[in-house]
Amino acid sequence: MSTLPIADEQVGVDVDFHDVRRVFPGTVALDGLNLHIPGGQLLALLGPSGCGKTTALRLLAGFDSPDAGTIAVGGRDVRGLPPNQRDMGMVFQAYSLFPTMTARDNVGFGLRMRRHDSGKRSARATELLELVGLSDHVDKYPHQLSGGQQQRVALARALAIRPRVLLLDEPLSALDAKVREQLRDEIRRLQVELGVTTLFVTHDQEEALSMADQVGVMRAGRLEQIAAPQRLYDEPATAFVATFVGTMNRLEAIMVDGSSVRIGDQTLPIRGASPGGAGTPVEVLVRPEALRIRPDVEGVWEVFVATFRGATTRLQLRRGEESASADVPSEVASSYPPGARCSISLPDGPALVAPPQPSAP
Rank of each mutant, 00 (worst) to 15 (best):
Thr27Arg: 15
Arg58Thr: 09
His36Phe: 14
Ala61Lys: 11
Gln41Leu: 09
Leu59Asp: 14
Pro66Ala: 10
Cys51Ala: 14
Leu35His: 02
Leu45Asp: 11
Gly50Trp: 04
Leu45Arg: 11
Gln41Thr: 11
Pro48Phe: 11
Leu46Trp: 12
Ser65Met: 12
Ile71Arg: 02
Leu35Gln: 03
Gly39His: 14
Gly26His: 11
Asp31Val: 02
Leu33Phe: 08
Leu30Gly: 04
Lys53Cys: 07
Leu42Val: 15
Thr55Ile: 10
Ile37Trp: 02
Ala29Phe: 05
Gly47Gln: 10
Gly50Phe: 09
Phe63Pro: 01
Ala72Phe: 05
His36Ile: 06
Ala72Cys: 13
Gly52Gln: 01
Gly75Val: 03
Ala68Arg: 12
Cys51Glu: 07
Ser65Trp: 08
Lys53Leu: 05
Ile71Glu: 06
Leu30Arg: 04
Phe63Tyr: 12
Gly74Cys: 05
Leu60Glu: 07
Leu45Val: 08
Gly52Ala: 01
Pro38Gln: 08
Ala61Leu: 09
Lys53His: 07
Gly47Arg: 11
Ala44Asp: 12
Gln41Trp: 05
Ala44Gln: 03
Gly47Ala: 14
Pro66Thr: 00
Leu57Gln: 02
Leu46Cys: 12
Ala61Pro: 04
Cys51Lys: 08
Leu46Thr: 07
Thr55Trp: 05
Asp31Lys: 08
Gly40Asn: 06
Leu35Met: 11
Ile37Leu: 15
Thr54Val: 03
Ser65Ile: 11
Leu45Met: 15
Leu35Tyr: 02
Ala72His: 14
Asp31Met: 02
Thr70His: 15
Ile71Asn: 04
Ala29Lys: 03
Gly32Ala: 13
Ala68Gln: 15
Ala72Glu: 15
Gly26Ser: 10
Gly74Arg: 13
Leu46Glu: 02
Leu42His: 10
Ala68His: 10
Gly26Gln: 11
Leu59Phe: 12
Thr27Met: 14
Thr55Met: 11
Gln41Pro: 04
Thr70Phe: 11
Gly50Cys: 06
Pro66Phe: 00
Gly74Asp: 06
Asp31Pro: 06
Asp67Glu: 07
Gly32Cys: 08
Ile71Gln: 00
Gly32Gln: 10
Ser65Phe: 11
Asn34Thr: 08
Arg58His: 10
Ser49Glu: 12
Leu45Cys: 10
Gly74Met: 06
Ala44Val: 12
Lys53Pro: 02
Cys51Asp: 07
Gly74Trp: 10
Gly40His: 05
Gly69Lys: 06
